[in-house]
């Protein structure tokens, strides 16, 4: 990776924008991990790989709703972008199954919805 210059920074960013696709973000700050987010992250990764889904699974920081950890945000084309809270192992599997594959929201765990 060649070093960035002030001229190449913007074009590099545009490149990255083009490659953005569907994604799932798991809150992996200490508050999330303390609530069990590392297991959720692992489960989602495994399930996504098992199903061969074209969705990126990423970590993110503390979104502020510490009372609702573990938090998982899902952005999949054709479904409202949602933030799920108090996600346990089962809910994590449901998210992959229903939301990512099935293109519909999972009941009883939506904490927030965002504009894309």
């Amino acid at each position: 990776m060649a070093k960035l210059t002030h001229q190449s920074l913007d074009s590099f960013r545009r490149e990255l924008e083009e490659n953005k696709g569907d994604w799932i973000k798991v809150g992996m700050s200490t508050c999330g991990i303390a609530a069990g987010a590392d297991e959720v992250y692992r489960v989602i990764n495994e399930e996504v790989q098992k199903r061969g889904l074209a969705v990126r699974v990423e970590k993110c920081g503390c979104a502020g709703m510490c009372y609702a950890e573990p938090l998982v945000e899902v952005c999949v084309e054709g479904v409202p972008r949602s933030v799920y809270g108090k996600v346990d192992k089962d809910t994590a599997l449901k998210i992959v199954d229903k939301h990512v594959s099935g293109k519909r929201l999972v009941n009883d765990h939506v904490f927030n919805v965002k504009v894309k």
Partner: peptide, 17 residues
């Protein structure tokens, strides 16, 4: 906190994005 919960803290690419 605009990036907290948005950006992957382990990826400089995501930060630049």
């Amino acid at each position: 906190l605009k990036n907290c919960g948005e950006v992957d803290p382990e990826s400089v690419d995501d930060y630049i994005l």
